[in-house]
C-alpha cells in the first residue's frame, strides 16, 4: 500500500529539492507507520553501547526518551509526525518561525492544553523544534553528538539542556500527554536523575556508529 496516498501526504519532493540524506530519511519516516515498538525496531540504534558502563546506560535511557514519538514527532525536518510516528494530518509545514505557515499555524488547532472534544493535544508554544535540532534518522550516537553541539541544540550548555528537559512546558507534556497517547518511557523524576548523572559524568556519548544515512 502506498502510504503517502493513504495519508494524503505530500508528494515526495523532486530530487533537486531534496536537502541531502536527511530529507530522504524524513520521507522514509513519513512513510513509516507502526507502533512505536516496531518503529524503533526499524531504527539501527539497537547496537549495544561500546561499553556497558553506567554512563552508557544513562545515555541509552535518555535516548529512549528522546527517540520516543512524544519527542521525536516534533524534532523533524520540515513536517511533524503525530501519534506513533505517522504523518501529521492535516499536512502542516514548519514555516519561518517553526510554528507553521500563514493560515496553517500550529496554534490554529493546538492551544495551551489538550482539547478533550477534538482530541487535539496542546501545550504552551506548540511548535516544531528548530530545523537545526532535527533528530529524525539519527543513530543514538549521532543524537548524542547533536544534543551536545551548541550549533544544533539551540546554543545550550548541558545545564541548559537539563533545564529544558526539566522545565519547558512543551517538553514536560511528553510525560503527561493525556488521552490514549503513550508517555515517554521513563518517569520524569527518574529521567532527570539519569540526565543529571549523565551531565555529571561529562556527557559521555557512545562511539560513533553507522547512521541510517550512510548505511
Amino acid at each position: 500500500m502506498d502510504l503517502r496516498h493513504e495519508y494524503g501526504w505530500p508528494s515526495p519532493l523532486p530530487p533537486s529539492q531534496r536537502v541531502g540524506p536527511a530529507a530522504t530519511l524524513a520521507l522514509a519516516a513519513l512513510l513509516l507507520v507502526a507502533g512505536c515498538g516496531e518503529r524503533k525496531a526499524e531504527r539501527p540504534d539497537n547496537a549495544p553501547p561500546a561499553r556497558a558502563s553506567q554512563d552508557g546506560d544513562h545515555w541509552q535511557q535518555i535516548a529512549s526518551v528522546l527517540t520516543h514519538p512524544r519527542c521525536l514527532n516534533c524534532h523533524q525536518v520540515e513536517m511533524p509526525l503525530q501519534g506513533d510516528g505517522r504523518p501529521h494530518i492535516p499536512r502542516v509545514e514548519r514555516g519561518p518561525d517553526n510554528m507553521g505557515v500563514a493560515a496553517m499555524r500550529c496554534s490554529n488547532c493546538h492551544k495551551s492544553g489538550n482539547n478533550q472534544a477534538s482530541g487535539v493535544p496542546g501545550a504552551p508554544h506548540w511548535s516544531l523544534a528548530p530545523e537545526s535540532m532535527n533528530w529524525s534518522g539519527l543513530s543514538t550516537a549521532e543524537l548524542c553528538q547533536q544534543l551536545l553541539d551548541p550549533k544544533r541544540n539551540g546554543g545550550r550548555t548541558p545545564d541548559d539542556l537539563a533545564k529544558h528537559m526539566g522545565e519547558d512546558p512543551l517538553v514536560l507534556w511528553g510525560w503527561q500527554p493525556g488521552a490514549d497517547r503513550e508517555p515517554v518511557p521513563i518517569q520524569h523524576d527518574k529521567f532527570m536523575e539519569v540526565f543529571r548523572a549523565w551531565v555529571a559524568a561529562g556527557t559521555p556519548c557512545p562511539q560513533q556508529e553507522q547512521s541510517e544515512d550512510s548505511a
Binding site: 494530518i89 493560515a103 499555524r105 496554534s107 492551544k111 472534544a117 477534538s118 487535539v120
Partner: peptide, 27 residues
Amino acid sequence: CGRALCGACTVHIDGEAARSCSITVGD
C-alpha cells in the same frame, strides 16, 4: 469533523485562523 481535520469551522481569533472545534470557550 469535530477534530480539526477539515477546516469547515475556521474562525479568526485575534487575527489568526483557528479551528473552532478544537478550541474551547475557555481558550
